[in-house]
Computed example of a mutant assay.
Amino acid sequence: MSNLVYTSNIKIKRKKGSLRHAYLPAEKEPVQFGLHGAIAKHYGVSDTIDDPHATTIDYLISAVGGCLTGTFGGALKVRKIDADNDKLTSDVIGEVELEDNVLVIKRILVKYTLLAEEKDRKTIERVHKIHKEYCAVYKSVYKAIDITSELKIETI
Rank of each mutant, 00 (worst) to 15 (best):
I105L: 13
K11F: 02
L76A: 10
S140A: 14
M1C: 04
G70F: 01
L68V: 03
C67M: 08
D84W: 01
S140I: 02
D84Q: 10
I130F: 05
V141G: 07
V102R: 03
Y112D: 04
T56P: 15
T148I: 00
K143T: 13
T148M: 03
K106Q: 14
H36I: 06
I124S: 06
R126L: 09
H42N: 13
E97F: 08
M1W: 01
N101S: 14
A22E: 06
L115T: 13
G17E: 01
I145L: 08
G44P: 03
E95N: 14
Y134L: 11
A116I: 08
P30V: 11
G74K: 10
T55I: 10
N101Y: 06
D100I: 04
I10L: 07
E117A: 10
R107D: 13
Y142D: 06
D51N: 02
T71V: 15
I93V: 15
P30T: 11
C135I: 03
C67P: 01
K122Y: 01
R126Q: 12
Y112T: 02
L76I: 13
K16P: 05
L76S: 01
S18K: 04
T89G: 08
S46G: 05
D84G: 14
K41Q: 09
V110W: 00
A26W: 03
D51T: 11
S8Q: 12
D146H: 05
R79K: 14
T69H: 09
I57P: 09
I124W: 04
I108W: 04
I105Q: 04
K15P: 00
V96Y: 05
D58Y: 04
V137N: 01
D91G: 05
A38N: 11
E27Y: 07
A144H: 05
I108H: 06
V96N: 08
T7M: 03
N101L: 06
V5S: 11
S46W: 02
L114C: 09
D58C: 11
K132F: 07
V137R: 06
Y142M: 03
R20K: 14
T56Q: 02
K139P: 00
R14C: 12
A136R: 07
L76E: 02
R79M: 13
Q32G: 07
Y138G: 05
L114R: 09
I49Q: 03
G34D: 01
S2M: 13
D82N: 15
I61A: 11
L98T: 15
I12W: 01
I93N: 14
N101H: 07
K111C: 02
E118S: 10
R126C: 00
T89Q: 14
D50T: 12
G73E: 14
V110S: 01
H53I: 03
